[in-house]
Design a protein around this nucleic acid. Structure first.
Lengths: 179, 179
DNA sequence: GTAATACCTGGACGAGTTGTGCAAGAGTTA
DNA sequence: TAACTCTTGCACAACTCGTCCAGGTATTAC
């Protein structure tokens, strides 16, 4: 029997938003990151818990959007895009960001774009087949309505490739629920 | 019977390195990206090809490292890391990049790092729990031996989140092998 | 033109996994 | 003590997986 709303909302909200992950979650994520094609059953064996537990944890992690998806991770380099660059855009501020963002989103080579501090600017990561091809991509960006100026920086090497695992291992936990 | 080496090497090398992907590959990747938990059998149904074909294509894509993995994709935001920043490092050039890269790799909040054009510099993407926490992360970076100066830019919004799919759809193909 | 090669198809096999449901026990909170 | 949440262990049928095979077709080499 429910006596008042506070007996419903607060615990749920806390579970959904305040909580992060516990030790078992972290181990599960690390395991899946190491061997992504593992099934639920195999995970449960490796982690030493029941299959239903792994299934429930996974569902919860996905529901809470801690896990946002399961690849596939496609390598631009393997597709022939060997050049990565970071381009800072100076844009006309009167128009706002949206039109520019829309224009950028229409360029396949723009892999991501962020608005950043420092007066109406955008930082975006682009790829191209060659340095000469990069010029073409930059031209396309400059052609986007609202873009005033660009300044590019080419990535030569990637000593630390994108990763999140150290973060997962480092997150403050709410105690270990597992025995 | 093999008459000379040229009847072996060139075709293989071409298949492995020169080729990109064809139409079916692109559709398969797009399908998996949209619904990553799909099995091989279900993919074959959706794509209208035999199961063995999908299996072979997937194996090849992974072998050629067009597909480098299958998540899970973990959201730093869901773990409480709400602040993303891009930090440009000026480093002491005598030592080279490696020691600095190693130091950065040991900081969980450093999600990726690239060496960039412009004289011994590094660009890295970091996350932090709050703006105040970002200061702590920056301090850790500055503490890395070889780092002289940093300059940070905070990402306020991400109008174009990381994506590769448009690239896949756009890649020049070697004709459609599918009927 | 003929042979060799690579690819797709459709079928088959057994082993293993998945989704689902249930009852019981443990731990926490009020 | 009661209510709640989570985990466990078990069960079931349905499905999928990895793997193999033979036959057909398209491309390439000679």
């Amino acid at each position: 029997m429910v006596h008042n709303l506070s007996s419903i909302s607060p615990p749920n909200l806390e579970n959904l938003y305040t909580m992060t992950i516990d030790d078992l979650d972290a181990r599960l994520i690390a395991l899946l990151a190491a061997e992504p094609r593992l099934g639920v059953l195999e995970c449960s064996r490796r982690l030493g818990v029941a299959r239903g537990t792994v299934q429930a944890r996974l569902d919860r992690l996905v529901a809470r959007e801690v896990i946002t998806g399961f690849g596939p991770d496609v390598s631009p380099v393997a597709l022939g895009y060997d050049v990565t660059a970071f381009i800072t855009l100076e844009i006309r501020q009167v128009a706002g960001h949206e039109p520019v963002s829309d224009g950028l989103a229409r360029i396949p080579e723009v892999l991501e774009a962020h608005t950043i501090t420092g007066g109406g600017d955008l930082l975006c990561r682009v790829v191209a087949r060659t340095n000469a091809d990069l010029q073409r991509v930059i031209d396309r960006i400059v052609d986007v309505k609202g873009v005033l100026r660009t300044s590019s920086v080419i990535a030569l090497d990637t000593p630390v490739p994108y990763r999140v695992l150290p973060l997962v291992a480092d997150v403050p936990r709410h105690g270990s629920r597992s025995t």
